[in-house]
């Protein structure tokens, strides 16, 4: 089972990945201003993934947006139950100018599954964050309309959590 927990080997990988992507404007902007907020970095199958500390996601998104990654393609979540931190909120950001993608991850503990909403940076996140709230039960602080989007209001539970049975409760 691949666990998102960050260890010492991760720190080494972080440094080498950041060094090899120093030319990327987003990496450059983040290492200059927000280097402490990058928890880990991974370059796998030609895709760059940066794990960001939960408190800094809005600031990081602003910096990434200012550096030329102008388009938020997708926001989603992965449930690593029973591992902790349990939720991996994942942002896929695209740069029309650079023709390159960037993945940002935020790891969220089960006890307090909340992240700041990035709707102030990209309004496109609105529906996606509602979808995560609906299907995973993670909350987004500062979201203008934090309600279920796909399931009915009276639905019990969050079906995409791994401890929710595929066939549902009867």
């Amino acid at each position: 089972m691949m666990s998102p927990v960050i260890d010492n080997a991760g720190k080494v990988e972080l440094e080498s990945v950041l060094a090899s992507h120093a030319g990327d404007p987003a990496v450059l902007a983040l290492t200059e201003k927000l280097s402490t907020s990058i928890q880990s970095a991974k370059f796998d199958r030609n895709e760059l993934t940066l794990t960001i500390s939960r408190e800094d996601i809005v600031a990081v998104c602003q910096a990434v947006q200012a550096s030329g990654y102008n388009f938020l393609a997708d926001v989603t979540c992965v449930d690593w139950y029973p591992n902790q931190p349990r939720f991996q909120v994942t942002y896929h950001i695209l740069s029309h100018g650079l023709k390159r993608r960037l993945r940002l991850c935020v790891l969220v503990e089960e006890g307090d599954p909340s992240v700041d909403s990035i709707t102030t940076v990209w309004p496109a996140a609105n529906f996606y964050e509602r979808e995560i709230f609906d299907l995973f039960g993670a909350r987004f602080g500062g979201h203008p309309n934090m309600r279920r989007i796909l399931l009915p209001e009276e639905f019990q539970g969050n079906p995409l959590r791994k401890d929710f049975p595929v066939e549902g409760y009867r």
Binding site: M2, D44, R45, E47, T49, A73, D74, V78, T90, H92, R101, R103
Partner: peptide, 16 residues
């Protein structure tokens, strides 16, 4: 093991 995001241009736009 791994995570990938693949996008294509569908009839309606970016399908990922």
């Amino acid at each position: 093991a791994g995570q990938v995001y693949q996008a294509i241009e569908s009839s309606r736009g970016e399908m990922g």
